[in-house]
Amino acid sequence: MILREGSKLVYHRLAWKEPFAPHLLQVLYEDDDMVALNKPSGLQVLPKGIFQQRTVLAQLQWKEWKMPPSSCSKRKNVQLHPVPVHRLGRGTSGLLLCAKTKLAKVQLASYFAEGAANAEKKRDGTEVGKERKISKFYRALVTGILEHDGDVVTQPIGLVHYPGVAEGLYVACSSGKPAMSKVCVLERLAHQNQTLVQVEIHSGRPHQIRIHLAYIGHPLVDDPLYCIGGQPKFHDLESTSTDISFAYDGGYERPLQPVPGDCGYHLHAHWLVLSHPTTNK
């Protein structure tokens, strides 16, 4: 029907029970401004889809954070505002950096934004003399044996239509946004036809490591979504009809094809180096 001025449209969402998700968050580092967590694989960072409460953000908000006594006299007006400042895929484990105050959030978010901007300048051949404020290093187990000990992947990443993902799926795409990943071989496991690699990312595009490693012919071991070339394993994107079955948790239509939130791949945020948001140490 056609709505008239003053009409209200109310949507009663079908209730569902969120699937199980690991909830233990190990605190690796904490001070007045930030906290570094060890996120387990299977735990989503921000609310999305069927995960609304079983997320890192919800746990940060539920936890009773206390400012250290040393900071109380100097920072009486500081309000705690615990939020993640970057994302890890639901299936990715490891270091997740979170801000505890709004000031720290703004500062740390600017570090990540600068990293993405610098990656774009480097891709265009522009010299970037500014020292990086944050560096992130991951460990990944990939299929196949990498020939070279090191590689730099600069394949742009963009969005394509994909069933079951409303905003589209990120893939290797020539018209996408610049991205840069440095790959370094740590160990070649010839008997398993696998390679353990370290990846340093100079930009933070969604699923960047999964896409870049797949693009160079070495997808992550057991990655349910991306295959060689940095494209989804399911190719017939346009002719897919909507499935009428619903997930076991009720009310949520589960896509038949793999989606980005599916777990199983081997990727771990191993370590990071950064300038402290307030002390610059």
Rank of each mutant, 00 (worst) to 15 (best):
K233P: 00
G204I: 02
P258R: 10
Y252M: 14
E200P: 02
D222Q: 12
L225E: 10
L213I: 02
L237D: 04
Y248H: 08
Y215W: 14
Y248I: 04
E253R: 14
D223G: 05
T242C: 09
H202T: 01
L256N: 13
C227H: 06
E253W: 03
L220C: 09
P255W: 01
R210F: 01
I211P: 08
V199A: 12
P224T: 09
L213W: 02
L225D: 02
D223C: 08
D243C: 08
V199H: 12
Q208L: 07
L225T: 00
G250S: 10
G251S: 11
Q257S: 13
I228E: 04
H202R: 08
E200S: 08
K233V: 13
R254M: 06
L213G: 04
A247T: 04
G217S: 13
Y248D: 15
H235A: 06
G229T: 04
S245M: 08
T242P: 03
P206I: 02
G217K: 10
L225A: 04
Y248N: 14
P258F: 10
D249V: 08
T242E: 15
V221W: 03
G251F: 13
H212L: 11
A247G: 15
S245R: 13
E238N: 14
F246D: 05
H212W: 11
H218N: 05
Q208I: 03
F246A: 09
R254T: 04
S245H: 12
D243Y: 05
S241C: 09
H218Y: 02
D249G: 08
D236T: 07
D249T: 11
Y215F: 15
Q208N: 05
I209H: 00
I201V: 05
T195L: 10
I244N: 14
Y215E: 09
R254D: 07
Q208R: 10
S241G: 14
V197H: 02
I211A: 06
P258H: 12
V197E: 01
A247L: 09
G230T: 07
P206E: 06
G229P: 00
H202K: 09
P219W: 06
